[in-house]
Each structure stands twice: as structure tokens, then as C-alpha cells.
Design a binder for these strands. Structure first.
Lengths: 199, 199, 199, 199
DNA sequence: AATGAATGAGCCTTCATTCAT
DNA sequence: TATGAATGAAGGCTCATTCAT
């Protein structure tokens, strides 16, 4: 019945068109937020008919999901600490991690702020984000486990949770609300705080 | 023209009516979010006509502003650490502070989550919140200053910023997304981390 | 959540407004059919905003239901044969019944045709109509029961069913598709056929 | 301009393709009705591109016309009573006729119900059906004429009209709305009623 | 001949806000 | 003061049909 056929573009022109829709959506949602950006507007900005929009996406939320997935592909995937951390001190690892999180936030900053907002707003959106964030948590715990014996903390789960939350929040706030101005100082102090806490 | 007269209620009955509107708004926005709560719905829940609603508030955002102000009155004002902290060790002060932030989040938790979301969403909403949060930052810095000589940190501004951000984020996440389950562990570890960082 | 408040008009002006909507709907649906008549069009024809339309009706189908109920009120209620039939011969009763059905079809003929069409189209619409038609069937059976002993038919249920279907169809076809031209002849022959069948 | 070239398939493959479209349309329209079945859907179900669809049919209505014609070919053509009726009593003829109408309704029942609905809905659709039904009326009158002298009825035209309408309606209702459950009783009573009426 | 991506008018519905009573 | 009926712009989405390839 309502099994609308969603087109999966294969030809170059179609792929470009879909990308134009995504670019337009990120641009508009960054400027005005998800709720204030209408699908018609996105289509218009992308230079595409509304019909075309709905042939690629079931609805606006479907597009949003894909945007979040794309962002996390770009932002999280390269955070593969486990590979590099073998030869690094824990201090260097933490420093590297914080820097990586910062770098991640530099890409489509405004849109990531919107993601954060929507995640806060409803569990439905939160879950969309969480699917992608989960990997990051796992990775961090496994890195920490490698230093198990040297740590002065006991409750590894709460510790990881705290550090991830802390770094995320600090970076997030610095980038989204302070325009990244005090970035260097934040990295330095944050590293100091976390390392001091762990040992 | 267009300068709609907004009434400031003075009589008891009017004040009660206004309060009923605010209670209704908090209830509904907590349940369904700001965007999904219509002004007509709020008026109805409050047992007031939509006309009355608009005689007290210029628009929905105006009501929201007042709600945020009210929340911050209840939540932040009592955080007057400076008074008590005279006889406390820094560890106890930090502990007390974290506990106070937690307590603050226990009041109208769902609505505070909504505030957080909207603040993230647009600078306009963010500013509404920031007006009220500013006081807290000031207070914390002054408390910290009292211990100036004993601290190992130098950059007092970044330090305060970091701690406030960190505590806020950890409490926020614990209360909003974990239902406060690991509250005790978080308070303990958070205190450990911050105190370790400061000295 | 989606508990939209449907307004029940009590004041004269509102009742008139609702009636205007119904009149407009009957007019347009008679001309172009249910599916080709949009709610915006109905509102426009009624000289009412689309918002007002949706304050009186949950949706287009809701309006349709009310129209059907209204039609059946006008058309079926007066068919109270049981009252009059006491002093009539069976032949006169049958004749009276057929005439009454004809009379019923003279009111909003085109719209009744549309009702018939939609009933055919889907069970959902059919049920809307059936709710109102049920009374008629009951009444007819009870009238027939009064003449039980004189009847040559045995299977009263099938007989009633057949007669109702037959009369309905003949009248319907005569009125809807032949413009009522051969009405008199049809009444005469139909009476003859049914009376001959019953005795 | 606008005179789109509609292809008349001559090659085997094309004829098959057209048949697939028709089969798909009957299937879908039977399930969901004419209005709820989109041309894109039909094309997809037929395993044919929407472009091909529009090269065979001017529009959706054009396809519908052909479907009705096909149905009437299958359903009405074999109703050649005149041939067999030579050796039959009028009672047997009527019985045979009713049975034949029933048999006709057993073929693509759901789709025929849809035809009936659309015929009711607009004269345009009705005419499509009438073109094909006309033959049936003619045939019935000629059969009846053969028994002219024995009949007690005078107005042969109204009589034929009444009987055709009656049988059609009763069969229709039995098959479409009662699932054919009381078919036998209906045939029996219907025959009794009509024969009793004629003699 | 055949394809199917693309179009866009138009449908249903919501809701912040106004204003006559 | 208070009411609540009324407004209409705007949003999400569908689908018959076209046309470049």
C-alpha cells in the first residue's frame, strides 16, 4: 500500500542530485534549524522539484538520518585511536583524543549543533544519533583498558562515561558557543584534568 | 499600531490565572516539547481562553522566556555557595556544588531538558538562558578565588569555564538521559576529578 | 495528543455557518463526486476559511458522515409505515412504501447517487450508510410480519431482502439514471410484481 | 501538438505486455479501488516502465475503459439465451438467465464491484459501462417477445427494464455484499417472483 | 520502442494570532 | 477584562504525466 519506492541513485547525475539535496539541507538546517526548514525549501535550494526530493527520501526525517550518518562517517571514523595509541603515552593518547574530537567538531559545526539540539529534544532523534555514537564509546573503553594496571581509578565504566561526557561537552561548548576562541587553552587544561584524574 | 497592550496582573485572581498558564505550559512542553505544544492547547489546559493567553503574553516565545526565568530563580538562586563555604574545605565545597547542581536538575527535569534543547537550537533561545546562567559563573569564580593560593592551576578563567561546563554536562546527561541512575557514582568521581585537577 | 477539539456550534451564526459548509459540500460532491471535491474547495464555496472547516469537522470523511446522517434523517424517518398501515390493504401498503422510497430519492438526488457510489466503493463508506439503512429493513420486516398468515412465501428473511433490494434498485435506477421519466409505470409494475409474489 | 501517438501492439511481445498491464490493473483496482491505484503502481506491478504504460494508454481512464470492455466480453457475450431458450419453458428460461447473471458476477467479482461504483459516480464512467450493457437488454427483450401471447403483462418495455434491474441488483448485492452466501435462496425466490409476475 | 527520472499542481491539515462581541 | 470563533499562510506529501536519453 504505502510502500513508496525510494530511488537509490546509481548514475552520476542522480548521485550529484542527491548530494545537492543533502548540501542544501545541511545549509538550511544549519542556518534555521530542522523544524524551520521545510522540505519544499530544501528542494528549491537544491534546484530540484519537491517530487524529486520525495523520490530520494521517504520524508524529512529520513533525510536527516542520512545527514547524521554522513556526519558521523566523516567525524568519527578517523578517530581510530587504538591503532596509533600503541606507541603513545597515556598523556599523548588523551591529548590526541581531545584534539580529534575538536577536529570532528570543525566539520559542519553549525549542523552538528543542530544534531545536538534535536538529540536533546526527543528520544527519537537521540536514538538516531546514538546509533552512530555507540562505536566511539566502545573504542574509548578499549583504549583505557590497555592502561588498566597503571590507573588509579577503579570504576572504569563511570570513568569512561565521565571523560567522554566531559570532553564532548567542553569541545561542544567551545566550538558551538564560543566560536573556538579558547580552543588551545581548553585542550591543555582538559588534558591536565583528565590525566591528573586517571593517575 | 501593533503595540499590543500586555497586561501585568496585579489582582490575586489574575496572578493565579497567569500561574495556571505557566503550569500548563511547563506540563505540556515537558511532555511534548516546545514546538509540538500549541498556544491553544496551553490555554485549554490552563482553563483559560486563548484571548486571555494573548493578553498576558505577546506570543509563545514571550511565555517561554518567563518560564526560563522562573526555573532559574528556583534552581540557581539557592546556590549561594559563598555563604556556606567559609567553613568548608575545598573538597567539601566542590562536593556541595555538584550536589546543588544535581538538586537543581531534579526540579522540572523534563522542562529543563527542553530548555537545553532550545538553547542549543538557536542563539535567540540560548541568550534567554544565558542571561540567567551568568550569575552562576560569577559566583563560582569568586568562590574559587578564595582558594587562590592553594590552587595548582593558573588560568583561573579557563579552569572555571571547564569545571562549570563539565559539571553541567555530567549532571545534565546523568539526569536527562540516564534517569539519574548512576548519580552517586558520578558525584564521587566528578568530585575526585575536579579536586585532583585543582590541587 | 492529536485530540483536536471539534467545535459544536450553539449560536445561531455558527449553526448557519456549519449549514453553509454542508450545503456547499452537498452541492460540490453532487457535481463532482466526493473524491474530486477538496476540503479547501468546500470551505471556499461555503464562504468560510479552511480553518473554520477543520474546527467543525475532523476531516472530509467526518463531514461526509454527517451529510449521510442528515440525508437519512430526511429520507427515512418519515417512512413510518407501521403507523399508517393498520387500515390499509397489503397492496396499498406496498404501493405506499414504493412511493415513499421514490419520494426519498427526490431529495438531493445527485448526492444520494454519490452515497450509493461510495458505498459500492469501499466497505468503510458502506458501513457509514448501513448504520442508517438498518432501521428501514427492520421496519419493513415488522410490517410484513403482520400479514404473515396471508402470505404465500415462507422464507420471510430472503423475501424481505429481495423486495428491499428490488425496490431500492428500481427506484434508484429510475431516479438516478433515467431522470424519473418512467416513474409512474415503474411504481405500477413494481407493485404488481411484489404483490403477485407475496400472495 | 498534444496528439500523443498511442501504439496499437501487433507483435506478440507487445500484446503480452499490454495484457500484463491489464492484469496488474485489475488486480490492484480490485484490491484498492480505481482512485487509490496509481498508474506508476500499475506499471510496476506489470513489470513495465511508466513510459511504456503511457505509450499504450492515453491515460488511466483509457485503460479503465479497456478493462470494462474486456469484462463485458467475458461476462455478457456468453449470455446468449435466445439460442438455448427454444426448447425451454419460460420458467426454465428465467432460471437460466438468473443463473447466468450470477455466473457473470463470479468472474472478477471485486473488479466488477469497482465498475459498479464508478458507474454510479459519474456519467462518464456510466456511459463506458452502458455501451456494453445495452446488448444484454436487447437480448432479453427479444427472448421475452417470444412468449408474448402467454404473458399477463402489457408494458413490455417497463417489464423488461424492471426485471433486468431487479435481477442485476439482487445478484449484485448477493455477490458483492453478502459474499454469495444466500445465492441459492435468492435464485429460487427471484425466479418465483419474476415468473409469478409474468404469468 | 522503452525507460524512469523529473516535474509541480494540488491535496489535506495545523496552528499562531486576531478581533468582534 | 475575557472570550473563542475565525483566519489563512504554510507545511508535508502524492501522483498523473512528460520527455530526454
Amino acid at each position: 500500500m504505502g510502500d513508496k519506492e525510494i530511488r537509490v541513485p546509481k548514475q552520476k547525475r542522480s548521485i550529484e542530485k542527491k548530494q545537492r539535496i543533502k548540501d542544501a539541507a545541511i545549509k538550511l538546517m544549519s542556518e534555521k534549524g530542522y523544524h524551520s526548514t521545510s522540505s519544499n525549501e530544501i528542494a528549491k535550494e537544491a534546484g530540484v522539484s519537491i517530487g524529486t526530493f520525495y523520490s530520494y527520501y521517504k520524508d524529512k526525517k529520513d533525510l536527516y538520518k542520512e545527514l547524521v550518518a554522513d556526519i558521523y562517517d566523516v567525524v568519527i571514523t578517523p578517530m581510530n585511536l587504538s591503532e596509533d595509541s600503541d606507541n603513545l603515552s597515556i598523556e599523548e593518547t588523551v591529548y590526541l583524543y581531545i584534539e580529534t574530537v575538536f577536529k570532528g567538531h570543525e566539520y559542519e559545526t553549525a549542523f552538528q549543533r543542530e544534531i545536538a539540539s534535536l538529540s536533546e529534544q526527543s528520544d527519537e532523534f537521540r536514538e538516531i544519533e546514538m546509533v552512530h555514537k555507540k562505536g566511539l564509546t566502545q573504542m574509548f573503553i578499549s583504549v583505557l583498558s590497555a592502561y588498566k594496571d597503571e590507573l588509579k581509578v577503579k570504576d572504569l565504566k563511570t570513568t569512561s562515561y565521565l571523560i567522554l561526557t566531559t570532553v564532548e561537552a567542553a569541545v561542544h561548548d567551545t566550538m558551538f558557543h564560543n566560536g573556538g576562541k579558547n580552543k588551545k587553552a581548553v585542550i591543555r587544561e582538559l588534558t591536565a584534568m583528565i590525566v591528573g584524574y586517571l593517575f
